[in-house]
């Protein structure tokens, strides 16, 4: 059974979002997504400073048998990426919601209301 922390926001394409105290938003892929992909072997991260709008492909996570795009869940600028994933992409497998985060975004609009809460995401992945 995949873990779905109640305090996070989610997308249908299996990204999670956490609003930090400084207003930045941390983004990663869900436990369910990492289970589907299997052992991750590579993550192609965006460059800090790049701006994206909602729905842009901004990152690729790769396992042996699959490669999956990560879609930008909200519009904004990338302010920091998780450099540790370059050498150890498997952190996403072991800690998808914590040390396996992908990048932090400075949002350019308030779009959080459009996203799913934990209950809705749980229902989504059970279908």
């Amino acid at each position: 059974m995949s873990e779905v922390p109640s305090e996070l926001k989610y997308t249908k394409s299996h990204e999670w979002l956490r609003v930090e105290d400084d207003g930045l938003i941390t983004i990663g892929i869900t436990d369910h997504a990492q289970e589907l992909l299997g052992d991750l072997v590579f993550v192609e991260l965006p460059e800090a400073g790049t701006e994206f709008v909602t729905g842009d492909e901004c990152c690729v996570v790769e396992s042996v048998k699959a490669a999956s795009d990560v879609y930008m869940p909200i519009s904004g600028e990338i302010v920091e990426v998780n450099e540790a994933l370059a050498d150890e992409p498997e952190i996403i497998n072991t800690s998808p919601y914590d040390s396996g985060w992908l990048f932090k975004v400075k949002p350019s609009a308030d779009e959080l209301a459009d996203l799913m809460d934990a209950d809705a995401y749980q229902t989504e992945i059970e279908e």
Partner: peptide, 9 residues
Amino acid sequence: LQAREQHIR
């Protein structure tokens, strides 16, 4: 590195 290839991507 098969994830680059057409049968997956």
